[in-house]
Design a protein around this nucleic acid. Structure first.
Length: 317
DNA sequence: AACACGTGGGA
DNA sequence: TTCCCAAGTGT
């Protein structure tokens, strides 16, 4: 597509922007290709089964995005009119917040909306030498960014600002010598570009523990969908305790063997998960048996892939 | 307003 | 190893 023509497919813009929330381009790339191949139009995605979408999203993280993605696709498909073409209209859809609404309006519809993501926050904080720490500085940075937004080619401008932040005006060692805006950058003039934006100190991550059980029955594994809300909501997993230190019985009788500990880092805590494996020796109280032939490691979230990788040799013999 | 919510890569 | 943090949203 030629630059500035505002003809990007809103469906693809929306899908990529949602995938890119808090996620790097490298991590998103193959997921985007896979989703657009399976579901070329928003109506196709809307018609997909929940479990398939969750399985395809597995590994990308922030699973509420996948649940909202499907809800949004179904709302758009049901409306029959495609995606809204205004920021305000987009904002009413699940999973579309201020950033994504502005990005779709600017990139797909060439609307003069101001797109503010982490990159733009950093670029603007440096251009104007904003000393207020994030996240309190957000409104101030948004207002400053709005003053910069051009009326022509706002979509290209938005992508250029994000690219500048991603490649030149980077968090640690900004390449000011290569920056086209260095002449007008207050932080550069003051020699404090690498220190901005300032951030409020963050709380240390608590350490949590739990147990995951890998149970085999003949040629099947005991798995369950996690509850729709909360951590890893709606995604496939091995039965486990809550990760609050409370006791919980295993999901079925078995002669459990201790395989080891899996460590995993979540946004707000560290987890050490004890992996137990055994042969199902009676009825299960949770989960369902998934034939090994149907089992697909890629349908598991990252944590559960680690659990499986530890248990697979034991289970598959 | 503050917190919940994944993961992987770079320094 | 450890820390930082990346194209945020929902509650």
């Amino acid at each position: 597509m030629p630059p500035g023509t505002g003809r990007a497919d809103p469906y693809r813009v929306w899908l990529s922007e949602v995938m890119l929330q808090q996620t790097t381009v490298a991590a998103v790339k193959n997921y985007f290709i896979r989703f657009t191949t399976l579901w070329p139009r928003v109506e196709d995605l809307a018609a997909a089964p929940d479990a398939q979408v969750m399985a395809e999203w597995a590994g990308l993280g922030y699973y509420a995005r996948a649940r909202n993605l499907l809800a949004c696709a179904r709302a758009v498909a049901a409306s029959g009119g495609g995606f809204p073409d205004t920021r305000a209209g987009l904002l009413t859809l699940p999973g579309i917040g201020p950033y994504t609404a502005a990005a779709i309006a600017a990139i797909a519809h060439d609307a003069p909306e101001t797109v503010v993501d982490g990159n733009v926050e950093r670029v603007v904080a440096r251009l104007f030498a904003v000393q207020t720490p994030l996240p309190a500085a957000k409104p101030e940075l948004t207002a400053l960014a709005a003053r910069l937004t051009p009326r022509t080619r706002p979509g290209d401008y938005a992508q250029a600002m994000m690219d500048l932040g991603a490649t030149i005006c980077t968090p640690r060692s900004p390449a000011c010598a290569l920056c086209p805006l260095s002449d007008m950058c207050d932080a550069r003039a003051q020699g404090i570009a690498p220190e901005l934006p300032r951030r409020a100190p963050k709380a240390p991550k608590p350490q949590r523990t739990g147990i995951a059980w890998v149970a085999r029955s003949a040629d099947a594994l005991l798995l369950e969908e996690r509850p729709a809300k909360g951590l890893l909501g709606g995604v496939l997993a091995f039965p486990s305790t809550g990760w609050d230190g409370r006791e919980m019985p295993p999901p079925c009788p078995a002669d459990w063997r201790h395989l080891g500990e899996v460590r995993h880092v979540f946004t707000h805590f560290n987890l050490s998960l004890t992996v137990m494996a055994g042969d199902l020796a009676g009825p299960a109280t949770r989960g369902r048996l998934v034939p090994l032939r149907q089992f697909d490691r890629s349908a598991l979230p990252g944590l559960m892939r680690k659990v499986w990788d530890m248990a697979r040799d034991q289970v598959k013999q």
